[in-house]
Write a protein that binds this DNA or RNA. Structure first.
Length: 409
DNA sequence: TCTGGGGTCCTAGGACCC
DNA sequence: TCTGGGGTCCTAGGACCC
């Protein structure tokens, strides 16, 4: 392999982003254990402050469990506006240091400083400047990780948390990864970690030294990637231009489990409209439609089908979803319903976004991310879209009464 | 009193065609 | 007598991420 011209990647990861924003907005919350949750009745903890973490409160916990662990925890319903606004402002800070950055999610970004770090006194100096700028402007902390690739920059930010700055230099990769559990790496979850453990591989060093043939045999095409990851090598480039979406979907845990077909249909229509409307707004059409169902006992499955023509028409999506529902003999009450449109193409009837709006589109994606997180019907994806929604895009005539309870607040 | 939502990528198996 | 196999499309499900 040819000697790699080392890149310099910087990862900025907000510390407890939503919770920090809330604490900054409302001084009464500062220094206290808080958890940001959704507005629905069956919500979970999305972000918890560092004060709450001390009690063992974790992301994904339901509110009762969080309360049990931390009786004086304060729950705050998430406010997309605040987070998307902050995210948008953050990009202004990043762009001062490089044109090549990727908004990976609403609270995380990667900056490629390879060609610009020398202009600002080095990457560590940039990291400090960014941290300070964010602190000054928003009063919140972030952690900066620096590394020769995206995997290591991300790892560095994880290791540096909270409110830290950590640099994994090329010459330190080997020692930094030596005893690091593989689970710490971005892309290795609990299942893969378990399977690796069965092979006697627990640390990154062991992973990097494992025989390719073994990994390939056990993990297929991903085996090579895993081995490279163990050595701290990652070829994923910074995506400065957002890629086209592959799917657009919405799902919701219903306010209560339902069985009545009439009720199910009402939700399916609503979900189909949410999907169709988003596809139309972003100029996509698709021809694969999936219906997702979760029963009371959490058993979850999906059924998908293909329609002959690409569509983003609410009713085409709805009718297909309904047809697939007809093919299912429900064994229990339904807890969650979802509709997803995939096999997407750009809507040929619409003019694609011009090049100059690329960056803006990536910000949009980040905002989508927030709204995805609070994907309930009443929530918007960004301020400028809210107006249209407020204008009543969803006809109240077919809005099922049951949804109202979701919409409240 | 239970357990969110939106994505991407990968695999495996079947249908169908040449 | 015997038995093919590549390629593509499609569906279902799992793992991972924020």
């Amino acid at each position: 392999m040819a000697a790699v011209t080392s890149k310099t990647i910087l990862c900025v990861d907000m510390d407890a982003f939503f919770a920090s924003v809330e604490q900054q907005t409302n001084p009464k919350l500062r220094g206290k254990p808080i958890a940001v949750i959704g507005s629905g009745g069956r919500t979970v903890v999305t972000t918890r402050s560092y004060e709450a973490r001390k009690y063992g409160v974790k992301t994904g916990m339901n509110v009762y469990e969080a309360k049990r662990l931390c009786p004086h925890i304060i729950f705050v319903i998430g406010d997309n506006e605040k987070y998307t606004h902050t995210c948008r402002e953050l990009t202004k800070i990043y762009s001062q240091f490089t044109p090549d950055f990727e908004i990976y999610s609403v609270d995380e970004a990667f900056l490629d400083l390879t060609t610009t770090h020398h202009l600002f006194g080095g990457s560590e100096s940039i990291g400090k400047s960014i941290k300070q700028a964010i602190k000054d402007k928003f009063g919140i902390n972030c952690t900066v990780g620096i590394g020769p690739d995206i995997l290591l920059a991300k790892l560095a930010s994880d290791l540096g948390k909270p409110d830290g700055i950590k640099w994994i230099k090329p010459e330190d990769v080997e020692s930094d990864l030596k005893d690091l559990p593989v689970k710490e790496l971005w892309g290795i979850g609990s299942k893969i970690a378990d399977r690796l453990a069965l092979l006697g591989i627990k640390t990154c060093e062991e992973l990097g030294r494992a025989p390719s043939s073994l990994l390939r045999n056990k993990f297929g095409i991903y085996g090579e990637t895993l081995k490279a990851m163990g050595m701290g090598i990652c070829n994923r480039p910074i995506q400065t231009k957002p890629e086209d979406a592959k799917s657009i979907g919405h799902s919701m845990t219903l306010p209560k489990d339902i069985w009545e077909r009439k009720e199910i249909k009402a939700y399916l229509l609503m979900l189909s409209e949410m999907v169709g409307r988003r596809a139309r707004k972003h100029r996509y059409m698709g021809r694969t439609i999936a219906l997702v169902i979760r029963y009371t006992d959490f058993e979850t499955f999906s059924k998908q089908g293909t329609v002959s023509d690409f569509t983003n028409d609410t009713h085409v999506i709805y009718e297909k979803a309904l047809k697939m529902l007809d093919g299912i003999k429900l064994k229990d009450k339904i807890r969650l319903l979802g509709v997803c449109l995939s096999s997407l193409i750009n809507d040929p009837h619409q003019i694609p976004l011009v090049e100059e709006e690329r960056k803006r589109k990536s910000i949009l994606q980040a905002m989508d991310y927030v709204n995805d997180k609070y994907g309930e019907f009443k929530l918007t994806w960004g301020s400028y879209i809210m107006q249209e929604r407020d204008a009543g895009v969803i006809s109240p005539s077919w809005k099922p009464s049951g949804v109202k309870s979701v919409n409240v607040k």
